[in-house]
Simulated scan of single mutants.
Amino acid sequence: MKRRHSLVLTAALGLMAASSARAESLRCNGSSTSEGESRLAVLYKCGEPLLKDSYCAPWVQAGTLQPLPSAYAAVVTPCQPVEEWVYDRGPGNLMATVRFKSGVVQSIVYGRAPQ
């Protein structure tokens, strides 16, 4: 009986891990765009976004979520350029925010309004 419960638990954990590792994609005009694609590819497939924003995000140390020390980061580079494009996918669909870092799609997030 314990073995059966452990198998069920293992299967459930495996499904949860697989679903959380899945990358989002954005469907536009019969094409699909996903993480790793360039700005040009997204623009070609999806057209001009409803909104665009760009800002400089602080660099983080490799393997951690800690920002680089200011003195070091300012010498190397002050920030990492980030762009966010918002697509309105029409009535009944959530808006999609596509985040680019160094000109490449890093994430696609769905929500009711840009954040």
Rank of each mutant, 00 (worst) to 15 (best):
Ser70Pro: 01
Gly92Tyr: 07
Leu15Tyr: 04
Ala12Gln: 05
Asn29Trp: 00
Val105Gly: 01
Ser25Lys: 07
Val82Arg: 07
Leu68Gly: 00
Leu68Ile: 12
Ser20Gly: 02
Lys101Ala: 15
Glu24Asp: 13
Leu51Asp: 14
Arg4Ala: 15
Asn93Lys: 13
Val42Phe: 01
Pro78Cys: 10
Val82Ala: 11
Met1Asp: 15
Thr64Leu: 03
Pro58Trp: 09
Tyr87Lys: 07
Ser31Ala: 15
Gln106Trp: 03
Tyr110Gly: 00
Val104Ser: 02
Asn93Glu: 14
Ser20Asp: 01
Trp59Glu: 00
Gln66Val: 15
Val60Gly: 02
Pro67Leu: 03
Val98His: 03
Ala11Pro: 07
Leu26Ala: 01
Ser38Arg: 03
Ser34Cys: 08
Met16Phe: 13
Glu35Ala: 07
Gln80Pro: 00
Gly47Leu: 09
Leu7Tyr: 08
Ser25Gln: 12
Met1Asn: 14
Ser31Asp: 14
Leu43Gly: 01
Val76Phe: 09
Asp88Pro: 11
Cys79Phe: 06
Ser34Asp: 05
Val8Met: 13
Leu65Pro: 01
Leu50Phe: 11
Ala21Cys: 02
Ala57Val: 03
Pro58Val: 06
Arg99Cys: 05
Gly90Ser: 01
Ala73Gly: 11
Lys2Ala: 12
Glu84Ala: 12
Asp53Gln: 15
Tyr72Met: 09
Lys45His: 07
Lys2Leu: 14
Thr77Asn: 15
His5Ile: 11
Gly90Thr: 06
Thr10Tyr: 12
Ser19Arg: 09
Gln115Thr: 08
Ala73Asp: 10
Leu94Thr: 07
Thr10Gln: 11
Lys52Gln: 14
Val98Arg: 02
Gly30Lys: 08
Arg112Ala: 11
Gly47Ala: 10
Arg3Trp: 13
Pro91Ser: 13
Ser19Cys: 09
Gly111Tyr: 09
Gln106Val: 02
Ala71Ser: 15
Glu83Trp: 03
Thr64Cys: 00
Tyr55Asp: 12
Gln106Pro: 01
Ala21Tyr: 10
Ser31Gly: 11
Ala96Glu: 04
Ala74Gly: 10
Trp85Gly: 03
Val60Met: 10
Ser6His: 13
Ala11Thr: 13
Ala57Phe: 00
Phe100Cys: 03
Val60Ile: 14
Leu94Ile: 02
Ala71Pro: 03
Arg99Ile: 06
Thr10Val: 15
